[in-house]
Amino acid sequence: MNDVSSYVHPYAPGAQPGPDTLLLVWDAPNLDMGLGSILGGRPTSNYRPRFDAVGRWLLDRGEALSKELGEELVPEATVFTNVIPGSADMIRPWVEALRNVGFAVFAKPKLQEDTDVDPDMLAHIRRRHGEGVLRGVVVASADGQNFKDDLEELAAAGLPVTVLGFHEHAAWAVASESLEFVDLEEIPGVFREPLPRVNLDQLPDMGAWLQPFRPLAALSK
C-alpha cells in the first residue's frame, strides 16, 4: 500500500519538467469574493464549489484535448489561497480536503491588504510555459486586470485558454474573442444547490426582484 503522505506532485517547485500538461490554477480569494457577492453573504456548505466535480471536469477536458492534439496530457490543478494570521485551524480541513482530491495548494500569508496570490498564479503559468510543457491553461478567476493580457498572449501563441468564473463578474472573458469562458455553475455537480442568481442581461418579461444584501438599518451602525 502506498503511503500518500510521501506522494510528491510531479510539478512541485524545483522538480524536473514533467509531461505535457493541461494546467488549472484557481484563484480562491477572488472566487470566494464573487460567490459571496452572488449570495449576499458568506457561502454555506451547499454553495461551496465541489472540487471533485471540478477535477472530473478537468480530466474530461484533458482527455478531449489529448485526442485533439494527438498526444497524452496530464492534468495539473492548483488552488492558490491567502491565509489570514490566526485562521490556520479554520482553513486546514479545507486545504487537506483539496489535497486529498488531487489538487496542489499554494498558501500565502495575508500580511497586508495587497498581499494577493495573483502574481504567484501568473508566475506558475509562465514557469510551465517556459518549461515547454504547457498545452492548455484554465484560470478560475474574475480578475481581468491581472490576467487578461497574459492569457490573451498565450491564446495568440496557439494555446487553448479557458476562464472559469461567474459571468456577472467576468465580462472581460465573456467578451473576449480569443478566450473561452465557462461559468462555474455549468460544471455538473459543482454546486449542491442552484445559485440564487439574476442575470440583468436576461431578465424575465415580468421583471425580477433583487433583494438587498443587508438590512437598511445597518447604515446606522
Rank of each mutant, 00 (worst) to 15 (best):
M206G: 12
L98A: 06
E193S: 10
A104P: 05
P49I: 05
S6R: 09
H167T: 11
M90T: 15
E131N: 01
G70I: 04
E113T: 15
G158F: 02
Q211F: 09
P109T: 12
G40I: 10
S178N: 13
A171L: 11
D32K: 01
R42Q: 12
N46P: 13
E177I: 13
D149T: 11
E131V: 01
E153N: 07
G34W: 07
G40C: 00
G41L: 02
G165Y: 06
A123W: 07
W57N: 01
R126A: 03
E96M: 05
S66C: 09
P85G: 01
H167I: 14
L31T: 10
H169E: 08
V138S: 04
F147Q: 03
I187V: 15
I125S: 00
P17D: 11
A217W: 09
L31C: 13
V198A: 06
N199A: 07
F181M: 15
H167R: 14
L69E: 04
P10V: 11
V137A: 01
D89M: 03
P160V: 11
N46F: 14
P160M: 08
P85T: 00
V138P: 09
L200Y: 13
E63Q: 08
L69H: 03
L35A: 06
Q202R: 15
H167V: 10
L219T: 11
P19C: 10
P19N: 05
P17Y: 09
L122N: 03
S45I: 09
D143P: 06
N100C: 12
D27H: 05
G14Q: 00
P119S: 01
S178H: 06
D201G: 08
D60L: 11
W172S: 09
A15S: 07
S45Q: 10
S6P: 03
L65H: 03
S6V: 00
E185S: 15
W26K: 02
T115Y: 07
F51I: 02
V161Y: 04
V101H: 10
I125G: 00
P212A: 12
K67P: 13
L151P: 00
G62M: 02
E96A: 10
S66D: 04
E168D: 12
